Structure formats: C-alpha cells, structure tokens
Amino acid sequence: MANREARFSARHIASLDGLRGLAFLMVFCRHYGMTSHAGNIWIRSAFYLCFGGWMGVDLFFVLSGFLITGILLDTRELPGYFTNFYARRALRIFPLYYTVLAVLFLMTPWLHLEWHTGHLAYLFYAGNIASNLDPDLVSVRPAVSLLHLWSLAVEEQFYLVWPLLVMLVASRRRLAWICGGLSVGGLILRIGLLLCMPRGSAYEWCYAQLPTHMDGLLFGALGAICVRTIPLEQLLVLTKKVVPFALASLLIVIVWGGIDFHSVPMIVFGFPALAGTFTCTVLLALKPGGAVNRIGSLSGLRFVGRYSYGMYVYHILFWPALSGVLRWLQSRLHSVTLGGVCFVLLMLAATTVTAVVSFELYEKQWLRLKGRFAYQSRRSNLRPDAESPR
C-alpha cells in the first residue's frame, strides 16, 4: 500500500542531522572526558556524565534503523532494489573506511605498527567479533586505536541481512512484529551470556555484537514502519504518551546499575530503554517547530551531523600516539584541569578539521557516483540523497 504520509526517505530532515551530530558529541565526550584527568571537582563531576556518552552509539543505531528501513520500505517494489541500495551504501561507507585502513598499513614503517593476523577481520567488518576473541586487536600498537570501529561493523552486518528481510516480509505489521521478536531474542541472549560467561567478558560480548545490541536498529526500524502506517499527528500523540515511560525506565536503570554499560541492569534493561527513548526522540524531531525539532535544527549540531561519519572514524584513531600531548599541555599550563580541558578542545578541533577536509576533498568525489544508482520511482518523487544515516 502506498504511504499515506509524505515519504520521509524522499525528504531531507534537517533535525535528524542535528541528532546525528549530538550522537557523535556524546561518543566524543565518552572517550575524551574519561581521559583528560582533570582534578577540579566541578570538572570531574561534569566528566562523570561523560561515562554515559556511549549512549550516543545507540542514538546512531536508532537513526540508522529509521533511515535505512525507510529507504528499503519505499523502494522495495522498484527496479534495482538490492543493487541500488548496496551500491549507494558502499559509496558512502567504504571509501573512507578502507582508505583509512590502507593508509595505516602504509604508515607501518614510520609508526612501527604491530599488525596481527586477527586484524584482517577489520577488512570484513568483523573487527567487533575478533576483538572480543582477542582484546589486543582493539589497537595496533603502539600508535593506533581501532576500539570504536565495532559499531560500524554492527551496522554493516545489519545492512547485510536487513534488506532481504524487508523484501521478503510484505506486511508492515508482520515486519513490526519481527522487530519486536528479534529485540526480545536479543534480550534473552544477553541474559544467557550473563549467566554463562564471566561477568566482564559477558559485558563486552553483549555490548559489541549485532545479535545482542540490535535494539536501537530494530526500534528505529519500527519507527520507520510507524510513520508509513500511522498519520504523523496521531503518531506524535502516541509518542508523547510513551516518552515518560521510556525516560522513567532509563532513569531507573541508571539509578539501579549506574550510567556505564558495564552493569547487569544496563545490559539487560538499559538497551531497550535507550532504544525506546531515542526512537521517541527521532519521531518527535519530525514535528516542525517542536522542541526536539528545534534542538536538532541548531546549525552547530547540523554541522557536526554532516561530517559525523568522518569525525567518528578519526576521533580516537591516533589516541595512543597523541596521549602524550595531554601530559605536555598539563605540564606547560601548570594545571591538570586546564591542560585536560584544552586537550579535549584541541582533539575536537583537530577531528573536525580532518573530517571536513576528508569529506570535501575525498569522500564527496565518491558520493557523486551515487547518481548512477538513483532510485527510479513509479509512484512518487523519491529523492535518493536523503539517506545518509552516518
């Protein structure tokens, strides 16, 4: 059945760019707020909140599930469904990812990088699996960190199977039930791992694998189904009723087990609570003039959102090599606090400049090729460049 509302995959929704930018800033604060070693009590209190920055990845997952599923639903009856989807995804994701890996390999003699056979898993977006089997694979000693690439692997694994499922399940209602069922399956699997494995290992396996951390992707997909099934105003009324329960659930989990993901309450109940909260956030961002829409439309957040993929890939790539800069700044400024804050701001600025230059001079050239794989709609005016989840 044709969508009764405007096709969201055919429009550019500026507020979602802002949410993407917010997601990156949360992740950035997690990685750098925890490592600045500021001693001031107020700064330390602020940096405590940075422990929750890992939740930005779940916001990324919700946005990806929402946007990608929307594209798939809107194009599954069109010619070249699989070819166009995978070609466009490859042109957006692969050039930067594989170029970075290639450059790192070429820099081996200068950085004295210690590669292992297990690092080959990153070529196949399986680094999340390999690094759980061998924690040494999260970095290439002594200068490079690959820690953050696990989430890209999870998304690519999702993209590999989800288009086929969307194609095979014609009923949107049935697809929505499948989203719920898979989420429950992930919950059961997480509980099983917590019961059968040492607690520390179980946390990592639950956090960094698609079957155990797909709530955000699935809830985002559910949101995409809803906006194509329920009139938007009616859906927003329902969303506003759900928000208090989602937020209350998340708050209870945080009070119970802490803000970090290394806790049983967060692993078991926090993932679906986060997915529900962020899905409601994405849906509320669709309402022009609403509070979430206005926040997501802030120019600063939208700027970060535009370059968020590159910023995510680059932001801690050379963290092991640059950690000495923190100590140097603290020594030169004679202040642990001031040096720590300056280090965080310096890393954010360097990440931003690198990502902007990378996108404008390199990635954009590949994106121009997406025109060769444009969706040819028989029913509506689909605009194919509204798809970029990251």
Rank of each mutant, 00 (worst) to 15 (best):
8 F>M: 14
8 F>Y: 15
17 D>K: 02
30 R>M: 13
35 T>H: 10
38 A>I: 06
47 F>P: 00
52 G>V: 06
55 M>G: 05
61 F>K: 00
61 F>P: 01
65 G>Y: 02
76 R>K: 15
76 R>W: 00
77 E>N: 14
79 P>K: 08
80 G>C: 09
92 R>A: 08
99 T>C: 11
107 M>T: 10
117 T>N: 10
118 G>N: 08
129 I>W: 15
135 P>N: 12
137 L>Y: 04
141 R>P: 03
142 P>F: 05
147 L>Q: 11
147 L>T: 15
152 L>F: 04
152 L>N: 00
161 V>M: 15
161 V>P: 02
162 W>I: 05
166 V>L: 05
167 M>A: 13
179 C>D: 01
186 G>Q: 05
189 L>M: 14
191 I>G: 03
191 I>M: 13
195 L>G: 06
199 R>E: 15
199 R>S: 11
213 H>E: 07
215 D>I: 00
220 G>C: 06
226 C>E: 02
227 V>C: 08
238 L>V: 08
243 V>W: 03
247 L>H: 02
266 M>D: 11
273 A>Y: 01
276 G>C: 14
277 T>N: 03
288 P>G: 08
294 R>L: 13
295 I>T: 09
300 G>Q: 11
304 V>M: 08
305 G>A: 10
311 M>E: 05
319 W>M: 14
326 L>R: 15
329 L>G: 03
340 G>I: 05
350 A>G: 12
351 T>A: 14
351 T>N: 10
359 F>H: 15
361 L>N: 11
365 Q>I: 08
370 K>T: 13
373 F>T: 00
374 A>F: 03
375 Y>M: 00
378 R>K: 12
